[in-house]
Each structure stands twice: as structure tokens, then as C-alpha cells.
Design a protein around this nucleic acid. Structure first.
Length: 562
RNA sequence: UGGGGCGUCGUCAAGCGGUAAGACACAGGAUUUUGGUUCCUGUAUUCGGAGGUUCGAAUCCUCCCGCCCCAGCCA
């Protein structure tokens, strides 16, 4: 369990556990589990659950298992189990040798069902799926008993064993619990325990053609593993009476189930169904598209595990449905990278400038601090010459008063270099677009200090043209422009933010970046934090993903003016 | 409509009968060779509403209102 220096906040689950500890409710250590179904990639909502379950186990001297809920072979596969293991590990958690699968317990689960049949608490039903639905009743009307509800124990046992033996087609029989068809809780109206599925299972192969439902498997799996606290999301609260019923009828270890609200995040979607659609319909590049809220996407974007853990700590855990502002996630990564990321200069939208009074073939190496937050990170040299690139945004021909940067006749500082004054503007004769600036530098201001105490309003970044490394930079923004895309009526397609990805292929970076290794992170001064994409970068061409921008006060001022 | 939950600042969220933590966001200001960082300062006389109990209520009781979940042989 990693140490992030953030003390866990009080929450109702921790309160319950501390209470249990005080009253000695359990004879053993605290035991939790993270129980994903391997039918898709994990997302930031799962990270909340992972941090919760592993975090609690570690903080209270307990253990946390990883258990795959693989009871529906049609939707599950190995790719997903591998990706889940990768993601949990990447987040910094270790399940040691406690990697389990519901399918490990198929035999035990089968015996549990036999046990219930013998106790006359379960029966084989031969109604069709549609008939079962009809017999179930509605929210307000009670259901009706199946005509097969009172089969004898012997007949039930025989049928169940023949179901297992493969004698029947899918859908012809199910095993149901015999509870109460008139219960106001629909989960108690004789729920299905086993169904026939002639499907290949990714772990048990063709050994089984009947599979337990989630409801019948989950609680018993927790019980078998000696779980003390089964932490799950709110929608399972209605199922708890059913799980209690199973555990009591079977007379086996009874974990305490606690439900909490799942995470919702602004400007994205977090339902597996929608995520899988984004991937399959090609709205994004894949599960690891850096815009995706999946762990794989977040990792590819350049977020760190620590920042995700910190985020999960800060959002808290409660029972109220809520929508967390994605700005908090962004804050968490900025906070970490401000401390850790080396600073470099890179120009995304280059504008050529010529320093007219700088000698034609001269090159100076200037000292630049690697991280003002951490002197131990040292300094580096950046080359300066007559021909430079600056950011197009850092020049305005007719600037408003609030604009501090370069303009005709104005003076600014080039970071770590010199003061320069803009003396001329070269435009494309046909389009009128500014294509080059003519400037004069003040040799007395070398390094950026002015001996005469002269002040300058802005410091801008730059890159020496002849020394620059050309790279591709991918600017990412929120996947959805809308704060809550779920509010959109289920239309024909997704309204993915058209500006969620911007690819810039001729960015000019300072030469030290030629040695940047894939997977490393930098702050491009004044622009944001960037990650060397480990998938698309190679020795010749580097690809940088923008993780997040810096806080941008100027953008705010501009927005207000507009 | 039957059942189960939930409602504390713009967003999360602590609070568990003794007089509203914290974080993000937002707004000012200071410092700054990143309009970054950091640092101050401000921001719920009030806890969905109305009654009641109490010396005292966000916390207990009653009623009302709003939102979420459940009618898969999905999880």
C-alpha cells in the first residue's frame, strides 16, 4: 500500500469498521475484496472502489482480495482480466497470492444450490424467460407462483443434475430460490440461481453448461473467502435481503455488506455500457485513448497513480449520489507535477522572430533552472541565437490594455535570455497573416535581469530555430463539452467534444528534449504538463500528450472580456 | 404507484443533542524571470420545507417536497 502523505478522511464506512473493531464483531482481521467483472476496462469509478477496499484493508491491518466475478461467460474474456490486473497494479495495490475467480467456486456453488433444494428452498422451474417475467408481477402488483414451484426434492435434484449434464437446451430450465412471489422487494420473488448457458468459459472451458447468476454467486464467494466487509455500490442495497437469505439458509459465514455511491465525473461518462460504445463505434481510439476516463486512458494521458489515489481520497465516500467536478482531478495532477516535473520550453504554434542586432552566426548557451520548486533538480543549458520561435499567442498587433505580452514597440523578457523589443512585423502579402517579427535585444539584460532596474510586464518562452527539435504534440480536452453528457437524450450517437483532441505536428521544442524518454513527464513552461507517449513515440519522432494545462489566468481574463 | 435509499456552500464532504471542519471552484490582494507556484483575505447566522420535543436541534419526532435505484435466465 503506497504512502501518499494524505491522511484518510473520516467516512461512514471507516466509522462502521472502527465500530466493528471496537465491539469485536469479527474474530479475524478485516478482509475486503475488489470484485470486478472482466467484461470491460476499469475506469476512474473503479479506482474509487479499489482505493477504498485496498486502503481500508491496509489501514486496519487487514487484507484485500482481487476476485473476478466471472459468472457470465458470454461477456467476459482474458483480455479484460489482464487489463484489470495491470490497472490495479499500476494504481499501486498488491493482492499478493489472493487472486480469485467466482469460477474457482463453481463446484461449491453447485453444492450450495443442491443444499437449498434439499432444504426445499429452491426448485427447478421450467417456465420460459418470458413467462417468468409475467409471473413476477410488477412494482405494485404481487407475482404468482410458478406451476413448477412444488416439485419434489427428488425431481428437482434429478433435473438439476441433468441440467449440469447438458441434457437441456438453453432457456428450458432454471433453478430458482423459493422465497416469496408477493414480496414488495422484487429481488425476493423467487430469483434465478442457475441458468443453462452452453458457452465456453475463459477459465473453466466447457466443463460447465450451467452458470450461477451474480446474485447467487457474489455473496457466497465473499463468504467462502472469509470477507468481513463486502463493500459495493448503492444499487445492490435492494439485493442485500436476498444475500442475507442465502447466507442464513446455507448457514455459512456472513459478511457485512456496506453500500456507497458510485462516482460521477463532469464532462465524461462512467457507465461501462457507454464506454464500450465509445470504443466500438470509434468515437475514440480505443480503451486507452487519452481522453477516456478508463485507467488505461488516464495512464496513457500521463496521469500518475499517486494523483489518482489522492483524488480518490479527496472525493470522499458517502451514500448520496453526486457529480464530482473534473477540475478536482486536474488539480491533483497539477499539484504533484508542479513538485516533480522538470521544466522545459516548447513552442506549440511557432512564430519566427529575428533578433536583428544579434550576430548572424553566434550561439550562446544560457542557464535555465529545471524546477524552481526543487533546487536539487539543478539546471541545464539552452542555446540562444538570432533566429527564434515564440508562441503565436504571445504576440498581438493591436493588444488590449490587459495584454502584457509582445506587441509592436513593446518590450518583454525571453525567459532566461534577454529583453527584446518588437521593431517590425512581417505579414503575408496575400493573407495579411503575421509570419515573422523583427526584434532588437538588449545585450545588458543577459540571463533576463535588467541592470538598470527596468521592468517588463511579461516573460515569454522561446526556442532557437536552428536547434529546435520538431515533435508532435496532442492537446487533449474534456471528452464531452457538456458538464453532464448523460443529460443528453439517448440520441443516435455521442456528442463527443470536437475539440477534445488537437494534433499539432510541427511543434518546436528545446534541444534537451531530444533525449526525452517515453513515459516521462515535463512542464512546458507557461503551457502545461506533458507526457511522452509511450505508444506512438519513437527515436526519430516524439509524441507528447498534454496531461493538463497550467492554470491560466489570462484565459480567464479573456473569457470575461468576451 | 409497492419497496429501498438520499437531500449540509457553485461541486464534493465532515459533523452522531452543545451552538456549521476541510478540499476544489470562485473573487480580491501580496510576492514572482512561468498571467505558473506560494502566501494572505473573502465566501452557508445556516443544514430540502413546515411543525414539534429540548435550556439547547444539521443532529431526536411528525408531516410534506425533491432526486436516485429495483419488474435481466446482466453485474
Amino acid at each position: 500500500m503506497p504512502e501518499d502523505g494524505i491522511k484518510p478522511a473520516s467516512n461512514f464506512i471507516r466509522n462502521i469498521i472502527e465500530d466493528d473493531l471496537k465491539t469485536g464483531r469479527w474474530e479475524t482481521h478485516i478482509h475486503t475484496r475488489f470484485p470486478p467483472e472482466p467484461n470491460g476496462y476499469l475506469h476512474i469509478g473503479h479506482a474509487k472502489s479499489i482505493c477504498l477496499n485496498f486502503g481500508i484493508a491496509s489501514d486496519y491491518g487487514g487484507l484485500c482480495n482481487l476476485r473476478f466475478d466471472d459468472t457470465n461467460p458470454g461477456k467476459e474474456n482474458i483480455e479484460y482480466v489482464e487489463s484489470i490486473k495491470t490497472d490495479v497494479r499500476w494504481l499501486g495495490f498488491d493482492w499478493e497470492d489472493r487472486e480469485f475467480y467466482a469460477s474457482d467456486y463453481f463446484e461449491a456453488l453447485y453444492q450450495y444450490a443442491v443444499d437449498l433444494i434439499k432444504k426445499e428452498k429452491a426448485y427447478v422451474d421450467t417456465l420460459s424467460a418470458e413467462e417468468i417475467r409475467k409471473y413476477r408481477g410488477t412494482l405494485t402488483a404481487p407475482g404468482t407462483d410458478s406451476p413448477y414451484r412444488n416439485r419434489s426434492i427428488e425431481e428437482n435434484l434429478d433435473l438439476f443434475s441433468r441440467m449440469r449434464g447438458g441434457e437441456f437446451a438453453e432457456g428450458t430450465h432454471v433453478v430458482r430460490a423459493k422465497i416469496d412471489m408477493a414480496s414488495p422487494n422484487l429481488n425476493m420473488r423467487d430469483p434465478v440461481l442457475y441458468r443453462i448457458l452452453h458457452a465456453h468459459h475463459h477459465r473453466t472451458g466447457n466443463k460447465w453448461c450451467i452458470y450461477p447468476t451474480y446474485d447467487f454467486a457474489h455473496g457466497q464467494c465473499d463468504s467462502i473467502e472469509g470477507i468481513t466487509h463486502s463493500i459495493c455500490t448503492l444499487e445492490f442495497e435492494d439485493h442485500r435481503p436476498l444475500y442475507d437469505w442465502f447466507l442464513a439458509s446455507l448457514e455459512i459465514h456472513h459478511p457485512r455488506q456496506i453500500e456507497f455511491a458510485r462516482l460521477n465525473l463532469t464532462h465524461t461518462v462512467l457507465s461501462k455500457r457507454k464506454l464500450i460504445r465509445l470504443v466500438q463505434e470509434g468515437h475514440v481510439g480505443g480503451w486507452d485513448d487519452p481522453r477516456m476516463p478508463t485507467i488505461a486512458g488516464i495512464r496513457r494521458r500521463g496521469y500518475t497513480p499517486e494523483s489518482i489515489r489522492t483524488f480518490c481520497e479527496r472525493i470522499g465516500v458517502a451514500r448520496a449520489n453526486s457529480m464530482v467536478d473534473i477540475a478536482l482531478l486536474e488539480y491533483c495532477i497539477r499539484e504533484e507535477l508542479n513538485r516533480k516535473a522538470p521544466r522545459v520550453m516548447g513552442v506549440l504554434h511557432p512564430l519566427r522572430i529575428v533578433i536583428e542586432n544579434y550576430p548572424e552566426n553566434q550561439v550562446e548557451m544560457l542557464q535555465a533552472v529545471n524546477n524552481p520548486e526543487d533546487p536539487k533538480m539543478g539546471a541545464r543549458e539552452v542555446p540562444f541565437s538570432r533566429l527564434l520561435y515564440i508562441e503565436q499567442e504571445d504576440f498581438m498587433e493591436n493588444p488590449p490594455k490587459s495584454y502584457y505580452r509582445l506587441a509592436p514597440g513593446r518590450e518583454v523578457r525571453l525567459r532566461y535570455a534577454y529583453f527584446i523589443r518588437c521593431t517590425g512585423v512581417v505579414k503575408d502579402p496575400t493573407t495579411g497573416e503575421v509570419i515573422e517579427l523583427r526584434c532588437m535585444y538588449d545585450p545588458a539584460t543577459k540571463g533576463g535581469d535588467s541592470p538598470d532596474g527596468r521592468k517588463v510586464k511579461a516573460t515569454i518562452h522561446w526556442v532557437s530555430a536552428s536547434h529546435a527539435v520538431t515533435a508532435e504534440v496532442r492537446l487533449y480536452d474534456h471528452l464531452f463539452a457538456k458538464e453532464n453528457p448523460d443529460e443528453d437524450k439517448e440520441g443516435p450517437g455521442f456528442q463527443v467534444n470536437p475539440n477534445s483532441l488537437q494534433r499539432l505536428t510541427s511543434c518546436k521544442l528545446e534541444p534537451s528534449l531530444s533525449g526525452a524518454t517515453p513515459g516521462s513527464r515535463y512542464q512546458f513552461e507557461r503551457l502545461g504538463y506533458f507526457y511522452v507517449d509511450p505508444v506512438d513515440s519513437d527515436i526519430q519522432k516524439k509524441v507528447f500528450n498534454r496531461i493538463v494545462t497550467l492554470r491560466d489566468t489570462w484565459a480567464k481574463i479573456q473569457k470575461k472580456g468576451a
